[in-house]
């Protein structure tokens, strides 16, 4: 987040971003400045929903919608939002999207809504959404802000699914509900469904990604 903020003009930018900027923004969200592994934001929801792949996909898609929408609206309103109350305005915009999403989930996907429980509402206090609005959308034109929001959402989604695959496979021997490891020979490791498994898998994932990034950096330095 911080390196992004530094390279941008401090005034609400009206400079037309070129294609390179779009590409950087897109891949930044997905990998190089990934919200979970690099910035360590939004891990509350991340640890809670990765218990099953299906939940993770729904939550990831929800986040893509909220992030893209919030970034679009914050960016469109950026010239009209007084600096001192911008946080409240951002929260109001985020909350609007989350409420719409929550109502839709309740109406059409009741089981999932029940399983995700309070974690859908907790998107409002998820630091990723606020962070992107604050660090990017408030000082960039709408289109590239949408790209940034979507990219960060996708970055969140794939990390969610990656961790959920591990946890669901080891914890219940299934993937998306289909049995992969048959119970005839495999003993389910319940620990991975419980909180400690979530923390440890998350920690290991951050370790792996950091190790890869460090070795890439060393290679570049040579």
């Amino acid at each position: 987040m911080s390196d992004n903020a530094v390279s941008l003009p401090s005034a609400p930018g009206n400079i037309k971003p070129d294609r390179k900027k779009y590409r950087e923004t897109f891949f930044g969200g997905i990998y190089t400045t990934n919200p979970v592994t690099v910035q360590v934001l939004g891990i509350c929801i991340f640890l809670a929903v990765t218990i099953r792949v299906q939940n993770s996909i729904v939550m990831g898609l929800a986040l893509i919608v909220v992030l893209t929408g919030t970034n679009l609206f914050v960016s469109m309103l950026r010239a009209y939002i007084p600096r001192r109350i911008r946080m409240i305005v951002e929260v109001a915009i985020i909350a609007t999207f989350v409420i719409i999403l929550d109502q839709l989930l309740r109406a059409f996907y009741w089981d999932m809504s029940k399983q995700l429980g309070p974690y859908v509402a907790l998107i409002i206090t998820n630091c990723i959404v606020m962070g992107r609005a604050e660090a990017f959308a408030i000082q960039n034109p709408p289109l590239i802000s949408m790209v940034d929001g979507a990219a960060n959402g996708i970055g969140y989604l794939w990390i969610l699914v990656a961790v959920a695959l591990v946890r669901e496979l080891i914890g219940s021997g299934t993937i998306l509900g289909f049995t992969i490891l048959s119970t005839s020979w495999y003993t389910k490791n319940i620990l991975f469904l419980l909180a400690p498994g979530a923390f440890i898998t998350g920690g290991l994932l951050i370790w792996v990604i950091n190790a890869i990034n460090l070795s890439l950096k060393k290679e570049k330095a040579k």
């Binding site: 360590v40 891990i43 620990l191 419980l194 909180a195 400690p196 498994g197 979530a198 923390f199 440890i200 998350g202 920690g203 290991l204 951050i206 370790w207 950091n210 190790a211 990034n213 460090l214």
Partner: peptide
Amino acid sequence: IPEALKGPGIILIVTGVIAM
């Protein structure tokens, strides 16, 4: 602590042990 594990990585793993 291994270089790449420093910071959030080790904190999450230790939190996992506390949770256990």
